[in-house]
Structures are given as structure tokens and as C-alpha cells.
Design a protein around this nucleic acid. Structure first.
Lengths: 347, 347
DNA sequence: CGCCTCTGGGAAAGCGCTATCTCGCTGCGC
DNA sequence: GCGCAGCGAGATAGCGCTTTCCCAGAGGCG
């Protein structure tokens, strides 16, 4: 009974040592059998080790491996808000690709607080992750930017690899979303549909993504002879979108035919605000968004938006960070205008 | 120059050893200063160590700590699909609570494949996480259930802690969602509104959550003299909901006044199917869902559903696993019917 | 047949930490 | 004045692994 090899009575997981003893081989041989080393090991021994490992339900201690090898199999992912579909889709992509590479993902949320982001980067560095992916949105001229950059450079100089998602003024590998071109194309298509007078709901000043989209939209209007009459800058969230639309409506729409929201969740919030004001989105005032998150197909009317393959963005971010990006991976992510019924042809 | 202490030239992160040398104290003292041990350390030494650590930009190697301490600060989270709002909200709760406890979350997705789930549990066990949270949906009588249970028991006997979200036939700590009572209450409220003839779109047979909700709904109908005329069982996803509704419509609704979908994403898919068939959800056929994910406020008409505080569920799952659950944490999560315009009063 | 190169197993030296143990020192009581 | 407890710094023995290094045995070759 005392020698019962099942883990049932033990209260510590089996170690490699246990496996080696059980198999009657040395520690080194056990190690070599369980994770291919450069060295060959006698097939019979190998089988004995494998059998022993199975019997003891052995699972290698990843921390110990990390210490011994001096390298981990971890990727750290930072997002602003996990529940936001934009980020959760990117996260899904990262996780999927990590899975393919047999890497483990650890995830943290900055809640859009750059102070917190910096803190998280510091903590996560302790994990010695192979790569860090920063998908939380960047703000221009944020006071924490320098400290963040310093931290990331230090991390890189220790062999870590960093990838950003979406633009940043920091000079790291980045999955570029073609925000500008996408918004510009959207504006052009909308003017083609006959729209002329626009308002925009964008994020608080300085959010790179939001700023680029707005700039692109404006650029697209200039060519097409549309005008951007008003811009409001609430929070970059669903409730922000609702609030922004309320502001626009409160002052009277003043002839605005279409409201461009800098992302889909804001657009969806805006549509609800329109409805709550007794108007019909699409009919009384058209709405367009950005991202093409899954739910916008299912709102009424379905939302015109600019599609970003978000899951692909997550996958690409990991490849880019790992350094095995293909040529296509290096190019900006293609964005594509998707016209739906929230912007019916006009006139 | 050679002695330059900045990390810039080094290509390995500073170790505790480096810090101790820099501060002119022993390794032990450095360790004790940087993470409070039971022992006191001379304030002057402590300051010297702290200064040295800051100077060298030292960040303790968590793997090494884990090995030395024999315990990690990791929590492993398993979900079915990260991009699904149901799971991403739970994940957000887990991450938030973990953050409070200074724990690090590693996340993996099962893609609703129990084989894969088992594999992931095995892999994640290598991390020696403090707790494992399984939120991926359980199937009754799944062939992998026994193996999963064995794996989790082994993990527990090694000091790990397991928590499930939503019901399971496995006997582990579980955050109970009151699916049954919620669905029952929903059915009652709907019959109160005047509905009598129902159809249900639920998940493929055996998904515990879906089954419970359906059973609860039926129970609620019996009291209220409503009848469940038809049940379809597509995939437990948005597209499944769409497809299920298409099936119902294809055969003719046959007097069904309200369709109950076993979760919100399915309900939203169903609403789109209704619209695509040229009908109006809420008016031609009422729809109700379950979960109250954020987007259902913004669809048209807003969806009647049963609210689950999903983020709270995630937080609670972690507390429960950690073992510092309060009395309230042990009780089933309260669910609440939210009537919206997708189920207008009838007649 | 002797020498030399391969092979591949095992011993052991780390990896970066923590925790125990050792031991000099101070201060107190009798 | 001496013994003894208490304090706290430093040395060191691990933690569970990987990866050198060493070495015995097996073959190859002139």
C-alpha cells in the first residue's frame, strides 16, 4: 500500500524525479525522453519513461522548466476591456494563434487607464513572457508614454518581443489597421449615396485610433464635397455613443443627415439614443460605424460600417511579435466598407 | 563604463543576486526586503536594496519564485469562446477579481470541444495554477466527463482548487446560475402578458445550461396554462439561433406567438431570421432570450430576457475557488426577468 | 590487435529564487 | 560578571527542472 504509485494518496504532484525512479533510469534520461532533446535515447528506456509518466500522471512543472531553460512559453496580452467585443475578438485571435504555437496566454485589462497599463506591464514582465501584445488603445501625448516605452525597451533588451495593435507613436512592431483609408473610403461611399451633411461622434481627444478615423473621414469628405458640421467627443464606449448622440440631438440636428461614430459600439449606442428620442435610425438620421463587430448585423437597421477582421488582427499580432510574420502580415490590415441599411441611398 | 548598472547593455534581466551585490547585502536580505518575509530587516539595508532594485529595474522572476515557494499566483480560466459576450463578460469578472487579489489570469478556449477541454486542463495543470475556473459549458453524459473529473480530482489532491460556472453533474465547487427558476419566472411573466403558444430554440441535446432553461420554461408554462408547441435544437450560437428560427418559420409558425431562445445570442440571431423572412420581431412573433448580454438593449425591439450579472458571476467564481467566498457567494446567482419590447402585452 | 571516434547513460552543476539554519552580537537578569 | 535568550544578517540547502560534462562500452580502421 505504501508504495502505491497512484497519485491518490500523495499530496504533491509527481516530479520528474519520481518518474525517473519509477522507470529505473536517471533524471537526465527521463528529461530527455519526455521532451525531445538533441540527444537520442534508447527506445526501450524511452518507453519505460513514458509509461512511468502516464502511470504517475506526470505533468512537467512549467515554472521549473522556465527557470531551467531561461525561457517561458507565455504570451502576455493587454487589452482595455475584455467585455468589449472589439477587444474580445482580438483576444480570441491571439488565443487561437497561441494555441497553435503551444503557447499560453495571460491576459490583463487596463480599463483604459494608462497608469494601470504601465503597472500591468511591470507586473507581467515578472512572468518573463516570450512576447507582450498591447492592444489597449493609445493616447497621444500621454504622460505615461515615456515610462511605458522605457519599460518596453528594457523588456526587449532582455529578449522579449513587443507588438502593438493599432497605431501608436511608439516605435515598436505594430499591426497597422488602415483606419485612415477605411474611414476615407467610407466617407466617399456615403457621399456617393447622396449624403452631404455629417456629424461625428468620436473618442476623447488624443485617442489615436479615434483621431485617425476622424481624420480619414474628413479627408474623404473633402474630395466628395460633403461637410462635417459637428464633432462630439464623449467616452469611447457604448454609453459614450449614446451620450454623444443625445448631445447632438439636444442642440437640434441642424440638417445633419448622417452621424459617423468612430466605432461600432458607439454607433450602436447612438442608434439607441436616436430611437429613444422618438426618431428612426436610418430613416430620420443615418448612422455609420467602424469595426464590423458581430452584433451590428443584428441591430435594426443593420449598421453600415468598415470591416476589420479583428480575429485575424489578433492572430497577426502574435505572429508579428514572435517574429514569424509573413510578408502579408507586415502590411496594414485591409479594411473594407460594408454598406448596410443604416445608410440608405439618399434622394 | 563596464560597471554601468543600467540594463541597457546587459542582455539578461537583473537578478536578485545583482540587486544584492549592488546594495552590498546578502541574497537573503535582498529577498527579505523585496517581499516582506516574517523576518524584520534593518531599515537602512532595506532602503539600500529598494534603491538598488529600482536602479537595476529589477523585476522578480515569477517562475523562480513559484519554484522556490512551491506555489504560483496564477489562475487558469477555461471558456468555450472568448468572443462570445456571455463568456467575455464572465472573463472580465474573473480578471477583475484576480487583479484585486494580485493574481495573474491565463486563459484558454475550448471551442465547445470537450476533448480539447480535457487536453487544455492537462496542459494548464503544468502551470500549477492556484485555481482553475471552468466556464465552458458542460454536456451531460459526455464520454470525456470521467477523464475530466479524474484530472480535476488529481489536480485538487495536489492542492489545486476548481470552480465551475453554471451547472455540472461533476461534484465541484460551482457558481450556480438559477437557470431553472429564471426560465420559470420568465414563462410565468410571459403568460401573464397574454402569451399562450410557445416555441423554443435551445442548444443541442445534453448541454446542461440549455436543458435547465428549457425545463424551467416548461415548468413555468404548466402553471400558467401556456403550451410549448415546438422545440428546435441547433448550435448554441448566434448562427444556431438564426438557423433554428429559419426552421421554425419554414414549417410555418402554426400559431406560435412567442419564441424562447435559450440564450441571448441565439435570440438575436432568431430576430434577424424573423426580419429576413419579412416579418417583424415583437409584432408578428415575440422573442425572449436569456442572459441579458449588453447588446440586447440595443437591438430592435429591445429583447425581453432573464438577467444574469455575468461579470459578478466571474468574480464570484474566483472567490469561490480561492475559498474566500462569503455566504452570499455560495447561494445561486440571482436571476431576474427583464421585460422589454420584444414581448409586448398581448390582446 | 591497438587506437580512436562515436554513442548514449548518468552524475552534477546550474537556473533564480525562498526558507532554514548558523552564528555573532546585544542586552538583560541574577 | 556571567549566562542566556533574542535578534537579525549571511550562508546554504533546496524547489523541479535542463544541460553540460564525464565516462564506459561499442564499433571502425590501419
Amino acid at each position: 500500500m505504501a508504495g502505491d504509485a497512484a497519485t491518490s494518496t500523495r499530496n504533491a504532484p509527481a516530479t520528474l524525479h519520481d518518474v525517473a525512479r519509477e522507470a529505473g533510469v536517471s533524471l537526465a534520461t527521463a528529461s530527455r525522453s519526455l521532451n525531445g532533446s538533441t540527444r537520442k535515447v534508447n527506445e526501450e528506456y524511452r518507453q519505460r519513461v513514458l509509461a512511468a509518466a502516464a502511470k504517475l500522471n506526470y505533468s512537467p512543472n512549467l515554472s521549473a522548466q522556465a527557470v531551467a531553460r531561461g525561457t517561458t512559453t507565455t504570451v502576455a496580452l493587454l487589452v482595455a476591456d475584455i467585455a468589449d467585443p472589439y477587444f474580445s475578438q482580438i483576444a480570441a485571435g491571439v488565443v487561437r494563434e497561441a494555441d497553435r504555437e503551444r503557447l499560453i496566454v495571460t491576459m490583463a485589462a487596463t480599463d483604459r487607464d494608462t497608469e494601470r497599463e504601465l503597472e500591468l506591464v511591470r507586473t507581467l514582465r515578472g512572468q518573463r513572457p516570450r512576447v507582450m501584445i498591447l492592444a489597449a488603445s493609445r493616447r497621444e501625448g500621454d504622460p505615461n508614454n515615456d515610462a511605458l516605452e522605457a519599460e518596453l525597451r528594457a523588456y526587449e533588451s532582455n529578449g522579449g518581443r513587443v507588438a502593438f495593435v493599432s497605431t501608436t507613436d511608439l516605435d515598436f512592431r505594430t499591426v497597422q489597421l488602415d483606419n485612415r483609408a477605411g474611414a476615407e473610403a467610407l466617407a466617399r461611399e456615403l457621399t456617393d449615396l447622396g449624403y452631404r451633411r455629417f456629424a461625428a461622434i468620436t473618442g476623447t481627444e488624443g485617442i489615436r485610433t479615434a483621431d485617425e478615423r476622424l481624420a480619414g473621414f474628413q479627408a474623404g469628405l473633402e474630395e466628395g464635397r460633403g461637410t462635417l458640421e459637428r464633432v462630439v467627443r464623449p467616452e469611447f464606449t457604448r454609453d459614450g455613443g449614446y451620450e454623444g448622440m443625445r448631445q447632438l440631438l439636444a442642440d437640434g440636428l441642424g440638417g445633419v443627415e448622417l452621424v459617423f461614430a468612430a466605432n461600432d459600439v458607439m454607433a450602436v449606442g447612438a442608434m439607441s439614443a436616436i430611437r429613444d428620442a422618438g426618431l428612426t435610425p436610418g430613416t430620420d438620421v443615418a448612422v455609420a460605424g467602424f469595426d464590423d463587430v458581430p452584433t451590428v448585423r443584428d441591430v435594426t437597421p443593420p449598421l453600415t460600417t468598415v470591416r476589420i477582421p479583428l480575429e485575424e488582427v489578433g492572430r497577426r499580432a502574435l505572429r508579428l511579435a514572435l517574429g514569424d510574420a509573413t510578408v502579408e502580415d507586415e502590411a496594414p490590415v485591409h479594411t473594407e466598407v460594408v454598406l448596410r441599411e443604416s445608410t440608405p441611398r439618399r434622394g
